[in-house]
């Protein structure tokens, strides 16, 4: 499973994802990858570089810039027994395919009375931080997490980048995988998969007893950095990586809050109507009497993400914001 790598060797999130794609294409001839520039270009973030040469243009399929058509084609191919992996360049572009994702992928099984499962994986980048301005930087995965009938994943670690794809492909229903753009260059030692490598459970990335920092995706490194700073002050923060945004692992959230009695939810999406709002509501519903302080939220400012670096950074959740929110809850 480790792709033959030695444990000393470092890999990036991008390479881990590529290795997952390679393994999927090798192990099942029903699997194929399609999307804009996934082939000859190598993927707009370089994830699929080299796969065209290895698997050919039928299975690593460049598409026209027709998000709705190629996502819908992925759904149709899945209905016909294939296991397509569709790549959309960014979550902002996925809005052009929203009809297919919501009205077909998420709905066909139900509308057909259980006759038509859609075993489709859709991957896309999400998030800000690279000065790509207001049409390439948003975090809309929470919108998708609103929809019954699809599974929404946010791999935040090398291990999840490497090992979430196989179970996603094995799922008979549509799975959306959100890859935060700031993670592709994250480098480290890829550990072999642990027993927690499923699609149902959140992961405790750092154990603690004083406060729960609940997050996912691109905000995980910031939450871990905040936990380090808090530790230096003697506050032991527990960091929960949700991993799956739908269905949410309620038990993990409840258990963590039962240990710490305080929670900060960190979500790069806008605060209003966000996934952070959903998590906060569930804590209020399920853990109200465990709480020693109001739930805190650290989200993006309610503004289209600006280009200028200083403004962009000001719009996004930062480690300092997380530390400050934790202080409000603990003090």
């Amino acid at each position: 499973m480790g792709g033959g790598r030695t444990h000393e060797e470092k890999t990036t999130y991008r390479e881990a994802m590529r290795e997952a794609l390679r393994e999927a294409l090798r192990s099942d001839d029903r699997v194929f990858l399609m999307g804009e520039d996934v082939g000859r270009y190598g993927g707009c973030f370089g994830v699929s570089l080299g796969l065209l040469e290895e698997f050919g243009p039928e299975r690593v399929r460049d598409t026209p810039l027709s998000e709705s058509a190629f996502v819908g084609a992925g759904i149709g191919a899945a209905l016909a027994g294939m296991r397509p992996i569709v790549e959309i360049m960014t979550v902002n572009f996925s809005l052009l395919a929203l009809d297919q994702i919501l009205n077909n992928a998420a709905t066909l099984l139900h509308m057909s009375g259980g006759q038509l499962p859609v075993p489709l994986v859709i991957r896309m980048t999400t998030g800000a931080g690279r000065q790509l301005a207001a049409q390439h930087s948003h975090s809309l995965e929470g919108w998708y997490a609103h929809i019954p009938g699809i599974r929404v994943l946010a791999p935040a670690t090398l291990e999840d980048a490497r090992h979430m794809l196989a179970p996603a492909l094995a799922d008979p229903d549509p799975v959306l995988i959100f890859e935060h753009g700031s993670l592709y260059n994250v480098s480290g030692e890829l550990r072999p998969p642990s027993e927690a490598m499923d699609l149902d459970h959140a992961a405790i990335r750092r154990a603690g007893t004083d406060i729960s920092l609940i997050t996912y995706g691109g905000s995980l490194p910031k939450a871990l950095a905040a936990a380090d700073e808090l530790a230096a002050e003697g506050i032991r923060a527990e960091v929960i990586d949700l991993r799956a945004l739908r269905p949410l692992d309620d038990a993990a959230i409840t258990a963590s809050v039962a240990r710490t009695h305080r929670a900060v939810v960190i979500d790069e999406a806008w605060r209003t109507g966000s996934l952070a709002a959903e998590v906060s509501a569930r804590i209020a519903e399920g853990s109200f009497y465990e709480l020693d302080a109001p739930v805190e939220r650290v989200c993006s400012a309610e503004v289209p993400i600006p280009y200028a670096r200083r403004l962009e950074q000001a719009a996004l959740p930062q480690t300092a914001d997380i530390v400050a929110a934790a202080h409000r809850a603990v003090d």
Binding site: A77, L79, A80
Partner: peptide
């Protein structure tokens, strides 16, 4: 395969069914 009530919404789906058979 339905029964699609979004005008033109069935077309991409049909392309995918055809693609699978073609592949």
């Amino acid at each position: 395969y339905g029964g699609n009530a979004i005008v033109a919404g069935g077309l991409p789906l049909a392309a995918g069914l055809a693609l699978a058979d073609h592949m």
